[in-house]
């Protein structure tokens, strides 16, 4: 079966006064229908830019798509006329953005912001669209939806606003839902409720989801596949269990190490990945993470490793690494011992 979404060699740059920012570098992956892909990585790793660029949502200029194809149901979104792309955005591809305070228009009611979307992509008349909007608020479990729909975003709490944002994302039953840091600003309980709700929506509508976050813990709960990004590149990618049990990129390993487990919380220590994020003004020659990587080999600094199937792991577990992380970790344990 052809994947729903196929990203090929996507490369995005920003031309700024300080130079060219190489935000996304040669990213390729596929996403099957019904799959949930969790994308993780530190701030600035190109997570947002690559999904926004797919749908023509980065500001151009300064943004520039240097190369690549993004096939959605077989059509290349990057070369599609703006008119056709508009039909897809909000219709077949729904977005949920971080920070619903700034992502919702403060001077329009929630009703207006939902109805304008529904009427844009369906043939419903004003009354039917309103009824549908109320139904959507009920689906995302906003109590007293018929009354609250007439309110403005600032009259909702943070968690409720995020639900409104999700209602907007799923309003037209998109094939693909892209959620960018959709729960980052929320407290743990609300976050868990929202994740549950998204899982229900997936079950009900079979929606394919891209869930972007920098929290490995969130990804574990919702994703089928994890994709770890760094410096605008994919470092590792594979089924959730494989990545958690057997990370092969030093960077994924570092992210997993920094997850607060019960044991580490008790000891009051959290592993931080040392070093600072890569300088995206300089196109990386080798692996962008190599300068921060204690396991890096000389080759890592000069030559970017390709994303390859991990030998001895499940199919679809890919890593970009020249060295063998399990072997290196084993060696380190032995020297410490």
């Amino acid at each position: 079966m052809a994947p729903l979404l196929e990203v090929r060699n996507l490369t995005v740059a920003f031309d700024t006064a300080g130079g060219t920012v190489h935000a996304v570098n040669d990213v390729s992956y596929g996403l099957n229908e019904g799959e949930t892909l969790g994308i993780v990585g530190e701030s600035g790793s190109g997570k947002s830019v690559h999904v926004l660029a797919m749908c023509g949502l980065i500001p151009r200029p300064p943004g520039r798509i240097v190369a690549g194809q993004v096939l959605f149901q077989g059509r290349d979104l990057l070369t599609l006329p703006e008119r056709d792309l508009r039909d897809i955005r909000g219709g077949q591809i729904g977005f949920v953005f971080q920070d619903p305070m700034t992502s919702l228009n403060p001077v329009l009611t929630v009703e207006r912001q939902l109805v304008e979307l529904i009427r844009r992509h369906t043939a419903l008349d004003a009354r039917a669209a309103r009824a549908r909007a109320i139904e959507l608020l009920e689906i995302v479990r906003i109590p007293d939806a018929a009354r609250r729909i007439g309110q403005y975003p600032h009259q909702f709490s943070g968690g409720m606003r995020q639900r409104v944002m999700i209602a907007i994302g799923v309003a037209c039953r998109p094939k693909l839902l892209i959620a960018d840091e959709a729960t980052t600003a929320l407290d743990v309980t609300v976050q868990a409720q929202i994740l549950d709700m998204v899982k229900d929506l997936k079950r009900e509508f079979g929606t394919t989801v891209i869930w972007i976050t920098h929290d490995m813990g969130v990804v574990a709960g919702i994703a089928d596949t994890i994709q770890v990004m760094y410096g605008g590149r994919i470092m590792e990618r594979g089924p959730v269990d494989a990545i958690f049990a057997d990370p092969r990129s030093a960077y994924s390993w570092g992210l997993l190490q920094s997850l607060p487990t019960a044991e580490r919380r008790a000891e009051g220590r959290l592993h931080q990945i040392p070093g600072s994020p890569p300088d995206l003004y300089k196109p990386a020659v080798g692996d962008p993470f190599a300068p921060r990587n204690a396991f890096a080999t000389p080759r890592c600094l000069t030559e970017m490793p390709p994303l390859r199937q991990v030998e001895g792991s499940v199919p679809g577990h890919l890593v970009a690494a020249w060295y063998d992380l399990p072997a290196a970790l084993k060696a380190r344990r032995e020297t410490v011992a």
Partner: peptide, 20 residues
């Protein structure tokens, strides 16, 4: 951000301009 949301909703440019 809400202008980006409006565009992500696939709204017509005239709608984005006037209302957002």
């Amino acid at each position: 951000d809400y202008v980006r949301t409006a565009r992500a909703k696939g709204l017509m440019p005239a709608t984005v301009f006037t209302w957002h």
